[in-house]
Simulated assay, not measured.
Amino acid sequence: METSCFSLSCFSLTLFLSLFTTTVLAGDPDMLQDVCVADLNSSVKVNGFPCKADITANDFYFKGLANAGATNNTMGSVVTGANVEKVPGLNTLGVSLSRIDYAPGGLNPPHTHPRATEMIFVLEGELEVGFITTSNKLFTKNITKGDIFVFPRGLVHFQKNNGVEPAAVIAAFNSQLPGTQSIAVTLFGSTPEVPESVLTKAFQVGTKEVDKIKSRFAPKKN
């Protein structure tokens, strides 16, 4: 005798199976080995890093996020990365972390991560955070200790400490090396320089204003 499955449990199982199937089809390819620790000294260029032969537990270890970074700079913030360049064992695993520290009033200026979505967890303090969609819609939120906020992959976003005490977050990425493009530095501090005619027309300002901004972001000469 056939029975129909209209119960909530049957519906939940069907939904789970459909989501699981979609995830499997859309996810990263299966790894072909247990680990592929990055050989950061190799001259071979691949989409990622080649694997090295001799590995140790230290290739999977990093303690650089334990302490606050120095925020005595122009922006009043500092990012300490724990990506494949610091933790070679992350190679091919598709994850990484960063710690971001902010002085009172400190800003992590508008930037993008072209290869990853970012999720932050507030360790201390209070922040105003936000991202802008490709239709120029701004989403902002004030977050405090214990809160989480997500910045979708590739979208311009920022964090600012509006509190009177230092703040800190741990940021997680679904990439071993998410990449960062700071909007101001990219446009006004590139090498070679973006043509002045492009910047004056794009920002609807004169050459004096462009030159003034460029002087603040020009690469430092050794």
Score class of each variant (00 low, 15 high):
V87S: 00
V87R: 01
P88Q: 05
N91E: 07
T92Y: 04
L93S: 04
L93C: 09
L93E: 03
L93R: 03
L93F: 11
G94V: 04
L97N: 02
L97Q: 01
L97T: 02
D101G: 05
A103D: 06
A103T: 07
P104F: 07
G105H: 10
G106D: 06
G106E: 02
L107N: 07
L107I: 15
N108I: 06
P110I: 05
H111V: 09
H113E: 05
H113W: 00
P114V: 11
R115C: 12
R115M: 14
A116D: 04
T117L: 08
T117G: 10
M119I: 15
I120V: 15
I120Q: 01
L123P: 06
L123K: 08
L123I: 15
G125A: 10
G125F: 00
L127H: 01
V129T: 03
G130Q: 04
G130W: 03
F131I: 05
F131Q: 00
I132D: 02
I132R: 02
T133M: 04
T134Q: 13
S135H: 15
N136R: 13
N136H: 13
L138N: 12
T140M: 13
T140D: 11
K141C: 13
K141M: 14
I143W: 02
K145A: 15
K145R: 15
K145C: 13
G146P: 10
D147L: 12
I148F: 14
F149Q: 00
F149M: 09
F151Q: 03
R153T: 14
G154D: 08
G154H: 08
G154I: 09
G154A: 13
V156N: 07
V156K: 05
H157K: 07
H157A: 08
F158G: 03
F158Q: 02
F158R: 02
K160A: 12
K160G: 10
N161D: 10
N162M: 13
E165N: 12
E165I: 11
P166R: 03
A167Q: 01
A168I: 08
A168L: 07
A168G: 10
A168K: 02
V169G: 03
I170C: 02
I170S: 01
I170N: 03
I170Q: 01
A171T: 01
A172S: 06
A172V: 04
F173S: 00
N174T: 01
S175E: 00
Q176Y: 03
L177H: 06
L177F: 12
G179A: 09
G179L: 04
Q181K: 13
Q181F: 13
I183D: 07
I183Q: 07
A184Y: 00
L187M: 14
L187R: 05
F188K: 03
G189R: 03
G189A: 12
T191D: 10
P192E: 12
E193G: 14
E193Y: 14
V194E: 05
P195K: 14
E196V: 15
E196I: 15
S197P: 13
K201F: 08
K201C: 07
A202R: 11
F203G: 06
V205N: 09
V205M: 11
T207D: 08
T207H: 12
T207C: 12
